[in-house]
Amino acid sequence: MSKLSILAALAALIAAPAAAQTSPEQRLAAMRERVERLEDANAIELLQATYGYYFDKGMWREVAQLFAHNGRFEYGQSGVYIGPQRIERALLLFGPERLGRGYLNNHMQLQAVVTVAPDGRSATGRFQGMVMLAEPGANGQWGVGIYENTYVKEGGVWKIASLHFYPTGITDYDLGWTRSAIPMDGPSALFPPDEPPTVVYRAYPSNYIPPFSYPHPVTGEVIELVQPRDDIAGRP
């Protein structure tokens, strides 16, 4: 959310017809509330983008500091880690601190949809993720997935309450999607999670769709999803 968007919203409110029959005080309060929510959305997008830059370069301490005191981190089928200290240690499963020679850990975040609660104390965010991975002695990988996250304002600062990345497809860099479908990793035996995965599913060639945290923007209806049949995941 840019400053231009905030200014445009202000202009629209100022230009609202007098037929609305509201007092100047009411209109000022409405403008103040609208600007605050737009600023919240802008702060959340900045928070999530910052997470991406830190995560890509293995800045695990800085990543963990973006989470609330009871923040939750969940990546695919690896389970849930709770609290900044546990999250920081779990991130070492993605590579050493600051990565190192031969590592690539790019997780791009696109198509942001941020929804701030009316009270401005919590929010949700959905993002499309594109992944490029490499590590010494192994072939590179491409991946895609969806982020469904929640945020909380803690001490007046927006932090990540829960980050859940759903990889929906992983493939070998050279073989490509038509000849390679790599399954997700399960929970680590070296550093087990605090909780098991919140949802069991399989990535490509299956076609699981993470539930939407926001309604249809035009109809206002909740999006009802029919997930693919999966005997292992218990979906008939």
Rank of each mutant, 00 (worst) to 15 (best):
T168E: 04
S213C: 12
A123T: 00
N70E: 11
P217K: 09
E74W: 00
A138W: 03
A43K: 03
M59E: 12
D174Q: 03
G120P: 08
E36M: 03
F127G: 04
L104H: 07
Y54M: 03
S180G: 05
Q21D: 14
L190H: 11
P215D: 14
F212W: 09
Q21N: 15
W158L: 10
G52N: 11
N42M: 13
Y53T: 02
G95H: 13
A15R: 08
L104F: 15
E25S: 09
L92R: 03
L28C: 04
D40F: 01
R89S: 12
S213G: 08
R32F: 14
D172H: 13
S213I: 07
T171D: 09
S23Q: 04
A9M: 08
N149T: 02
E221N: 08
P17Q: 06
R61L: 07
V218I: 15
P211M: 10
T115A: 12
P228S: 11
Q109S: 11
H69L: 03
K57P: 01
L133D: 10
E36G: 02
I6L: 06
G156S: 08
I82A: 01
Y204Q: 03
T219S: 15
F212Q: 04
V218L: 06
Q21H: 14
S78D: 07
R34T: 15
P17E: 06
Q77P: 04
V222N: 14
A19T: 14
A12H: 08
V113L: 03
K159H: 07
I223H: 13
I232M: 13
F94L: 14
I209P: 11
Q128Y: 13
P17A: 12
Q65Y: 10
G145F: 06
R121W: 06
P210Q: 10
Q109K: 08
E88N: 11
W158Y: 10
T115N: 09
V35I: 15
D194K: 05
L46K: 14
P210C: 05
P197G: 03
G220Y: 07
Y204C: 07
P196F: 00
L47C: 10
D172M: 05
A189I: 02
Y54D: 02
A43F: 03
M132T: 12
G220K: 08
R98P: 13
I170H: 00
A19Y: 05
Q48W: 12
Q77D: 09
S162N: 09
H164R: 00
I209D: 13
T178D: 08
T22K: 15
P183I: 11
A123D: 00
Y81F: 12
G145M: 09
R202Y: 03
A117C: 12
G220C: 11
P192I: 08
A9P: 05
Y81C: 02
T168F: 06
Q128D: 15
D56G: 00
E39A: 13
Q48C: 05
R121I: 06
P187F: 07
G120C: 04
I44L: 13
R32L: 15
A11E: 10
R34W: 09
L28G: 10
G100L: 06
G186L: 01
V226I: 06
Y75M: 11
I14E: 14
I6C: 01
G220A: 11
G58V: 05
L13E: 11
H164S: 01
L13C: 04
A19F: 09
D172E: 10
R179K: 15
Y204N: 05
R98Q: 13
E221Q: 07
D119C: 05
R61Y: 05
S5V: 12
Y81Q: 07
P24Q: 09
